[in-house]
Computed example of a mutant assay.
Amino acid sequence: MGIEELYPAGRLTAAQRATAAAGLDALLLTPGSDLRYLTGYDAREGERLTCLVLPAEGEPTLVVPVLERPDAEAAPGAGYRIVDHADGTDPWPLVRAALPGPVRAVGLADRMWAQQVLALRDALPGAAQRLASDVLREMRIRKSPAEVAALAEAGAAIDAVHLRMGEWLRPGRTEREVAADLAAAIRAAGHAAVDFVIVAAGPNGASPHHGTSDRPIGVGEPVVVDIGGTMPSGYRSDCTRTYVAGGPAPAEFVDYYAVLREAQRAAVAAVAPGVTAEALDAVARDVIGAAGFGDAFLHRTGHGIGLDGHEEPYVVTGNPRPLQAGMAFSVEPGIYLAGRHGARIEDIVVCTTDGGQRLNTTPTELIAL
C-alpha cells in the first residue's frame, strides 16, 4: 500500500466538483483530517495560519507559514500550489487572492478555530459560511481499498498490543502503571501516536470514558481496556477487550458478559449493505435489553473511523442511513453497573458488498490473566 494510493491527486478534482454541486465557491480547510484527506499533509495546528483554499474552479492553493513550507512541500499530495507567509504578516489577503471572482458562499473546516472564522468574516465580507463536511462527508464515508488496507494495518497493530496484555495487567498494579506500559506498546507496535488508553478496573469499569487512575487493580476484578492510536498513514485503530485479573470474576459479571458477547457477535454478523445504522444499533440493544440490562447500555453501538477516531457513520438510534460497502465503523456494545463493574467489546468492522469484515481478530471471550 503506497502513500500515493491513500492520498490520490484525483481527490482534489473530485472535491472541486462536489463543491460546485453544493453551491459553494470554495472550501477553506485549516489543519485537520479534511485537509489531510485531500492533500496528505498532516499540518500543525497553531496560531499561524495554514489553510487549503480549494475553489470550485481554478487552481487550489495551500497557504502555510514560511517556517513550515518544507513540511508542506514534503507531503504526498499534488495538484496545488503552495504560498507562504512570514511571521508578523497578515495571511488573509493570500486566502482572498487565491479565490477567483466573487465569493458568495464558502465551506469551512468543521473544527476551524473561532479566531479564524471571525477573521474570514472580515476577509470575505458578505460570504455565507457553511460546513465543509456537507461537501466532503460523502467522499470520506466510504473507504477506498487502500483506506481499508490502512485500517486493517492499524487493527493488526492494536491487536498485537491486546495479545500482550498478560505482560502488564495484574493485581496490585495501578491502572496508570498499566496504561503507561500500554502506551509504550502501542508505539512499539507501529503507531505514530497514542490517541487514548483506558484502563478501568472494578467499579471504574462502569464509567465508559473513565481513563485511568492510581487505584490498584484488585484480584478477580474485571478490567475494561480500550486503546487506540494513529498509524503513520494517518488512519486510526480502536479496540476494546475486557479482562479479569488474577482470579475468578464475580458470578453476575460472568453472566452479563455472556449477554454482551452475544450482542456484539450478533451486531457484527448483521452488518451488510442496506441495513440502516439505527437497525444495526437495535440488533445489539435488543439482545442486551431482552436480558434485562437495557438501562446499563449507556452509549451508541458504534462510530465511524478513518483519519478521525470518531467520524461518520454513527451507529446509533435515530440514524436512518443505510450501510454501504466501504463504510468502516466500530461495533462496541457495553454493559455498565454503577459502583460494581462494567464490560465492553469493540471491533472495527468494514461493510463489504455482501456482509461485514472484522478488522480486529483477537478473541472476544472473557480473558482471565
Rank of each mutant, 00 (worst) to 15 (best):
V259T: 13
V64A: 06
H341Y: 14
H85G: 05
D226F: 07
R17I: 13
V95W: 02
D71N: 08
G318V: 05
A193P: 05
E147H: 12
A26S: 02
H303P: 01
G355N: 09
A98L: 06
V275K: 01
A201V: 02
L136N: 04
A179Y: 01
Q116V: 13
R48N: 14
Q116S: 13
E147R: 11
T39G: 05
D214A: 11
Y314G: 12
M165G: 01
A206E: 01
P363C: 06
F196H: 13
Y243W: 13
P93K: 10
L307Y: 04
G318C: 11
H303Y: 15
A180T: 12
A132V: 10
R104F: 02
R130T: 14
G172F: 01
T240A: 11
E278W: 12
Q16G: 09
E175H: 03
R81K: 13
R285T: 11
L307R: 03
V331W: 02
A343T: 04
V244W: 00
P322G: 06
A179T: 00
L307N: 04
V161K: 04
A291P: 09
R340E: 10
D286K: 13
V148L: 15
P171S: 06
S213H: 01
A15V: 10
R215S: 12
L323Y: 06
M1K: 11
H162W: 08
D214N: 14
T240S: 10
P91D: 10
G292H: 08
A26F: 10
R170D: 03
P31M: 06
G306Q: 04
I186T: 09
G318F: 05
A14T: 14
R285Q: 12
I82T: 05
A132T: 03
E332W: 01
G205D: 00
G77P: 06
A109F: 07
V259P: 01
V161D: 00
T30D: 07
V148E: 12
S133K: 15
T352I: 11
S133F: 15
D25R: 10
L151R: 03
A272C: 14
G229T: 07
L182Y: 04
V219L: 13
L108N: 08
F253G: 02
H162R: 07
G289D: 06
A119F: 09
